[in-house]
Design a protein around this nucleic acid. Structure first.
Length: 343
DNA sequence: TCTCTTCGACCGAGGTCCGA
DNA sequence: TCGGACCTCGGTCGAAGAGA
């Protein structure tokens, strides 16, 4: 068990024991519920109704259509809310109107910076739209992700954002739920994609300008239906069009940081010996892999050697729509120190 | 007639009770 | 043991009543 697993296990058990304590306390004294730790009952509309002498419908109207109440009665209810320390109960609202305001998110993992940053941007939309997110990491296991989707559906989510690529869009469309896929095969659902082809063209062109003798693109194998395939195609097309010496390495890139790191380390050794004395321009499928490669080079040589030029690929588009819509985000080329021309 | 307020069905799933 | 009726949770909402 890793340190992180131990930590999460401890947190889970601690929360579980707290909930158990609260439940025991409730059954023993019948005056406590989860969310209020001080032996005080959760205040409901019924309590406010009893306290003020109004019906609970009138209390409900105070929140949803206050103009239908006299100013005097609004003030009475407002005072009661303060006095009783009322706290909004979203669960009851969901029970009544069926709108959970939950959106499910399935991502392959969080160790790739692309996914964690994407999730970060998705979570930030709460302030604007009010939707909450239930997030699962599928680790590229189809059966696991199907199980997670069933779990999400049981919580009556109002939509799904899919960054995973194990489940085909035809199957996802059958759930009859608003779904947006990001950088995935998207024939039957809405999607948001980067212009991978143009991004690869820009990256490859930049590497070529650095004076590299050989250009190498490392990536996983994708079918042409997957947007990421555009990176492979863009790289190959530019190299062939301008007759640039190149090598395409399509391989399993791993399912964890450690696995990816080992695979990239092995690939680096192969490239290092195969193209000794030549300047190597390496185009990696994402910034995390580019950083891993950079770290291996620094560990080996103490710094980024002059005969290595590294470039990654990342983006963070987000959009949603009820109708199938496919939005293409134009890539922006960012020139960092890892692709400075040789002198 | 209009404004304000109340009543009670309803949402969904699990628990309880009672009769067969 | 089984099945059906009823209740529970906390809100929403349409219909209807009360009063000015």
């Amino acid at each position: 068990m890793t340190a992180f697993q131990e930590l999460s296990f401890f947190v889970y058990n601690h929360i579980k024991s707290l909930v158990f304590y609260i439940n025991i306390h409730y059954h023993k004294h019948n005056y406590i519920s989860v969310g209020n730790y001080h032996g005080q009952k959760n205040i409901t509309f019924n309590d406010i109704a009893k306290y003020t002498g109004f019906s609970k419908t009138t209390v409900s109207r105070y929140f949803n259509n206050p103009d239908s109440l006299t100013l005097k009665n609004q003030q009475i209810i407002s005072d009661a809310l303060d006095k009783l320390n009322y706290q909004e109960n979203k669960v009851a609202r969901i029970l009544a109107n069926g709108k959970t305001e939950f959106i499910g998110v399935i991502i392959p993992n969080l160790y790739l910076h692309y996914y964690s940053e994407m999730l970060n941007q998705i979570l930030k939309t709460y302030d604007t739209y009010g939707y909450k997110f239930l997030v699962f990491t599928g680790d590229d296991h189809k059966s696991t992700e199907r199980k997670y989707i069933q779990e999400l559906l049981s919580y009556k989510i109002e939509g799904m954002v899919i960054l995973s690529h194990t489940i085909p869009s035809r199957e996802l469309a059958s759930y009859n739920l608003p779904i947006v896929m990001i950088e995935r095969e998207d024939q039957f659902v809405s999607s948001v994609n980067t212009d991978n082809y143009m991004g690869a063209v820009q990256a490859t062109s930049l590497l070529a300008k650095t004076g590299a003798d050989i250009l190498i693109h490392i990536n996983a194998e994708f079918s042409p239906q997957v947007p990421s395939y555009g990176r492979i195609k863009g790289f190959s097309d530019i190299c062939e069009e301008y007759q640039i010496p190149h090598e395409l390495i399509l391989t399993d890139t791993g399912r964890s940081y450690e696995e990816s790191s080992l695979i990239l380390k092995d690939l680096l050794e192969i490239v290092d010996s195969k193209y000794q004395g030549k300047t190597k321009g390496i185009f990696l499928p994402n910034d995390t892999f580019a950083n891993i490669m950079l770290n291996h080079l620094i560990q080996k040589y103490g710094q980024l050697p002059d005969d290595y030029k590294i470039i990654g690929f990342d983006d963070s588009p987000v959009s949603m729509s009820s109708e199938p819509v496919h939005k293409i985000i134009p890539p922006i080329l960012i020139n960092r120190k890892t692709t400075e021309p040789s002198h």
